[in-house]
Nucleic acid binder design. Structure first.
Lengths: 350, 350
DNA sequence: TCCCCGGTTTGTAACGATCCAAATGTAACC
DNA sequence: GGTTACATTTGGATCGTTACAAACCGGGGA
């Protein structure tokens, strides 16, 4: 009745086999639910498994079967709510497929990215989902990952010059179209002088969003003043600091398309600090629709990317690749949706 | 010069040994940087390792050495910024120790917790860091984890009746002291009628925070009206919904100690919706110091828990346990720090 | 009686690494 | 020259599991 102490050594399949007086092969068949084993034997073995508190050693099985039961998830900034949601989505889908997630956070450092990839690959994941650190080099990533391990790139392109045949899949947001929609929305409200605020000049997502903004402005026959393009780190703090720059020159803008939500929230704070009231005398939009966008003051008009769903999608794409290693690389662009809230108001004088 | 194609099969230590005309054992020694091998042999082998693009198979090594190179991290809500930061801290320390992180998100479901633990344990982690789902049962957790796998419980106690000898370590925040500090701060500002707002009645952290609040009130000789204790889900949305309840009866409070930051931010929103201005005619405090607390309107007075540092600490505690399996369980209470910002103002009539 | 058959079971050799005791080669010593 | 000491190298056996081909077994048909 009492549980067997089993002080140190782990219980293995051999222990069970010995106790039931059957071969290891039979126990293995039971574990995998094979229809070959006799009903009685199965019952006897299963009872013994419970009794001894056996736990399956999947690494050993993977070694023998030359399979994998994990996928690696490498993120440039796990602490960012956008990626945290994304990770939750990945894990959800990965777990549902019977895999486990190996996590690695690079904190936006390409050195750590190299190290993390190297370390994770040694654990034999079936594939890798990577949101690259800024300024990474395609060649180095490929070197760490190898030519044959399925790789899904999320969110960013890889920098550096491309190797001859890039074998990876990609999943990116429709940055350009999204920023374009935001700008069109502000234009429709009557704004004429619209800034593009925040983000790093050379990040690929920022470039794409700027481009979308430009297209919308151009299509509406509106001019873009160079001092309406304001760079900042993609953080609230730096964004708040840069707010003043908007009103430095003459012909100050009445609205801004912000690089992302963090920047937009920072800008809001900066506006308040300069005595302006976002959503009343200045309109702005974000990008990402993080949880706080809904409850900021005022609630933020933004582009919803549904990061959790993107995580599920990324996992699905990678799992698909695991089963079809030889189909040509796929490149998915996930649509984004404009969510209108109170931060985008008409221009004051309109 | 060109890289060897190596179309399918992975390169193993045997391949290298064959190519260098040495034994597998020697290659193994090289890989582990043993001082036994001759300088020339080492160079020859290392060159070949590079040439063939060898990657170490850590699972195989772990099998043979009966070691582990991973730790499992199981969280009740990865999408919550608090836990995302925590996870980043864990991963940082875990990676620095040469381990990888196996991630599992339970989304606050005890069923998924069981499944996730079961699945992760099969991959042979060296230990587990678990932030339990609400309403979990100690017995079931122990059943999934086993009696001998190092386990560190973070943030919450386990429900259900305790097994005879609980072998796990714990790391919790000083919830009681924190809430007490918040209440004392409000009292010092001159508030007499202070509510405790939000959180689930029966969650252990909420109980502890309520207790801290009570102690402070009692120590100051202040009464606690029962309708000042308002329950809510620990989310912004539900908190905003419950805001009205504060002013339902007579003797409405002039301040509130909130269960956590999410609840506090929700309450702020609710206050605005009822025409009140938090930080001017109503004071409130949060708990956690999430990133947005600093930039809310007004910036939130709260208790800083430094979740990333807690993550590092959790990893350190678990790694310590790995090296000292037989020392008695440790129970760590992490201090919290009051961060005063603008949301805590004096009472209006004072 | 013998043979064949489906339903079960099993022995043995892997998977890719490490451990360990023993073997090798070389230089140094008496 | 023979012995010892030291530096290197190596052949298995092994970790816990699975694949595979072969063996077993009881019964039905010839």
């Amino acid at each position: 009745m009492g549980s067997t102490p089993q002080v140190r050594r782990k219980v293995t399949l051999s222990d069970i086999a010995a106790a039931c007086d059957v071969s290891r092969a039979t126990v293995s068949l039971v574990l995998r639910g094979s229809p070959l084993v006799n009903k009685n034997t199965r019952a006897r073995v299963e009872e013994e498994l419970r009794r001894q508190g056996y736990v399956y050693n999947r690494s050993a099985a993977n070694l023998r079967r030359r399979t994998s039961s994990s996928i690696a998830l490498v993120l440039n900034d796990l602490a960012n709510p956008f990626f945290a949601e994304f990770a939750a989505g990945v894990d959800e889908a990965v777990a549902a497929a019977g895999f486990v997630t190996l996590l690695g956070n690079t904190a936006e450092s390409t050195d750590r990215e190299q190290a993390v990839l190297g370390s994770l690959v040694e654990h034999g994941p079936g594939g890798i989902i990577l949101s690259p650190a800024e300024g990474g080099d395609a060649r180095k990533v490929l070197e760490a990952v190898g030519e044959h391990l399925p790789l899904l790139l999320f969110n960013r392109e890889l920098g550096g010059d491309m190797p001859a045949r890039a074998h990876w899949d990609t999943l990116v947001l429709d940055n350009q179209r999204g920023a374009q929609m935001a700008a069109e929305h502000l234009i429709a409200l009557g704004h004429k002088r619209i800034a593009f605020f925040g983000g790093h000049r050379d990040s690929s997502s920022c470039r794409q969003r700027r481009e979308g903004y430009r297209q919308a402005m151009h299509a509406a026959g509106l001019r873009v003043e160079s001092h309406w393009m304001i760079e900042s780190a993609p953080t609230r703090l730096d964004a708040a600091r840069q707010a003043a720059a908007l009103f430095a020159g003459k012909s100050a803008p009445t609205a801004a398309v912000c690089y992302n939500d963090a920047v937009a929230l920072g800008l809001m704070l900066g506006l308040y600090q300069h005595g302006r009231r976002p959503g009343h005398d200045f309109a702005l939009t974000g990008f990402d629709d993080i949880a706080e966008a809904r409850v900021s003051m005022p609630p933020l008009t933004t582009l919803s990317t549904v990061p959790r769903e993107r995580g599920r999608q990324a996992a699905a794409l990678l799992l698909h690749r695991l089963h079809h290693p030889d189909t040509p690389p796929s490149h998915t662009v996930a649509p984004v949706k404009l969510v209108v809230r109170d931060s985008s108001c008409p221009p004051p004088a309109a």
